[in-house]
Design a protein around this nucleic acid. Structure first.
Lengths: 341, 341
DNA sequence: GGATAGCACTCTTATTCTTAGAGTGCTAAG
DNA sequence: CTTAGCACTCTAAGAATAAGAGTGCTATCC
């Protein structure tokens, strides 16, 4: 059979996938004829299905079972058949208000967004935190806690805060701490973060810093505050939704595998990083994302010009894309707006 | 039968529970006679078991199955029969170094402790963050991000950091921000946090603040930074360990229930709060903690004098208490030490 | 020539039955 | 009090059966 699908082929494919998304069980020709394409008989539908199977859009779990879409089938569905359902005003309202409500604290904010994605998609919500290194230096501050400890606080232009406790051998007074802070704030002013490290090293070589011990120390401490690897923070919420999916309740081993994948955050970060281009939601299916049987709908969000992070929904291949895609896109826009101001 | 257990009764109970902890399956009289009490015949063991069942320490899943300990049995085992196995030096070393290594950043630290508890117990690790309100005011700082936003950062004496972005109607310059910070730092110096709120309200009524708009604004903003409910932060790690337990792999519904319980963090906080007294680990069994079939080993940790948080391990009733209890106690001591310095 | 009715065939799922085995409970003897 | 012996119970696993769902093919119809 030719690879070009006739109008009817598409209709049948659409019906099969729609039904499969709803029911999670293999779809029979009879169901299609009865519920979707009333002017066709089951036998006709069967013929079409057989063709679609031959072209790789559908499969058979076994001879006498209904059809199940393949990855190729789902891909085709997404690319050419998908009808998006806009979010209802009520949903938009909830997302807006809960998003804004938590925007004060960055951690809480990202977690809340993740929760919202999970809530409305009935799947797993994920948010990859903005890339720290894409941001700009705003301020650094040292605060003396006691004789051996000072607290270093680093603030980025868009209000991201990182802190780190620093153990020191020789006591430093608060006023010295302030001197150090002031010096660094002046030197590093408005640099993009990726250049801050370089600048610090340069500055260490400067003549005056070779003589002024305090300034030398300031640079070393600043280095320490920044050395921590704060990239790749991921917020994952709503994993329990997976337990509700019939395809996983059946197969406990499958479920274990997926949960373990989530435990290893590094993998997730790598996948989410793929979406850092483009404006719209992007869909990764099973093999493309290296998670068998799962699917990701992700979109980048950004502050001002810069692309900075990713958010999305993870669920079974059999996801309600029509609803999830607009959800992810809407949420990404909201985040960009809230982070941009 | 009398409620007082003979020496032999205890031995049998001990053997049954030990074996059950290892195998997760009902224990037969034959196993006990063969592996634990070699000088007794299975028949004798059966008699003792029947007595123990009558007194409520053991049960029967069904007539022809071995015995399983009841909650009462486990309680007795914990209280009088438990032999603790100290951590190996290697284990101690790992905990020490990974704990210290992450002590710089508070969030990362608490999460790492939780991970360690999970790793060595092969169960779920939990850490309830230190109570914010038990801590002392150290410093507050306002940083101007742009015309409409300033960032408020609050630092407690022990180095806990909370930040919040504040939207303002009328622009405030950075030097005004500094003036506000300085004023507040002077007024609130060294106050315990629970008194800070009161002090702020008092201060608002002071004459000079009624005239000086900036100071009035400072107080309002400080209030905002602190109003957020930051209590009850819980770090839960290693939930996948539950999936490995044979008793849950069998029963998917049971598992769902437990995962849902974890989703609702409030419940967990409430339970963990129970341990805020005493020095040692405390064990809560199923019904006592309102999680059927589960068990909690928890211990408080503290900074300087004050009790401030809880950490522990959550797992099936059938937990290796001999190992987990020392682990929890050791970790609690380590945390107290690291937070105390 | 495409659509459809009819029917044989396949495979799954549920049910029942059977059996082996594990373990107990009781009794009677040591 | 301990233990050997044995009948009895219940589970877990396997085999056999039956019902049902669904397909694939063929012959027919328009």
């Amino acid at each position: 059979m030719s690879e070009i699908l006739s109008e009817r082929d598409k209709e049948v494919l659409h019906a099969v996938i729609s039904e499969y998304i709803l029911s999670a069980i293999a779809v029979s020709s009879r169901t299609i004829a009865k519920r979707y394409l009333l002017d066709l008989s089951p036998a006709t539908v069967r013929n079409v299905m057989a063709d679609l199977e031959e072209s790789g859009y559908l499969t058979h779990p076994h001879t006498s079972a209904g059809r199940v879409p393949t990855e190729k089938g789902v891909r085709f569905y997404i690319d050419t058949l998908l009808e998006k359902t806009a979010l209802t005003p009520a949903e938009q309202e909830t997302i807006n208000s809960r998003g804004e409500g938590s925007a004060g604290n960055r951690n809480e904010f990202l977690r809340e967004i993740s929760r919202l994605l999970s809530l409305f998609s009935h799947n797993i919500g994920v948010v990859l935190a903005p890339k720290f290194k894409d941001t700009f230096f705003k301020q650094i501050r040292f605060i003396r806690l006691n004789t051996q400890t000072i607290l270093g606080i680093f603030i980025s232009e868009m209000g991201m805060v990182h802190h780190r406790m620093l153990q020191i051998e020789k006591e430093i007074s608060q006023s010295d701490c302030d001197r150090m802070s002031n010096y660094l704030n002046q030197v590093l002013q408005n640099l993009p973060l990726r250049e801050v490290r370089i600048k610090i090293i340069e500055e260490m070589r400067t003549e005056k810093n070779l003589y002024d011990q305090l300034l030398g120390k300031a640079l070393k401490l600043a280095q320490k505050v920044l050395e921590e690897n704060t990239e790749g923070e991921v917020y994952v919420e709503g994993q329990t939704h997976l337990l509700e999916q019939p395809e996983f309740s059946q197969d406990v081993d499958k479920m274990k595998e997926i949960f373990h994948a989530f435990e290893e955050k590094g993998l997730l970060v790598k996948i989410l990083d793929q979406s850092l281009l483009g404006e719209n939601a992007q869909i990764l299916l099973g093999s493309e994302a290296n998670i068998e049987g799962m699917s990701l709908v992700i979109a980048p969000y950004h502050t001002s010009e810069q692309v900075t992070g990713t958010l999305g929904v993870i669920g079974p291949l059999r996801m309600n894309y029509g609803k999830v895609v607009p959800l992810v896109e809407y949420t990404a826009r909201l985040m960009s707006r809230l982070l941009g101001r």
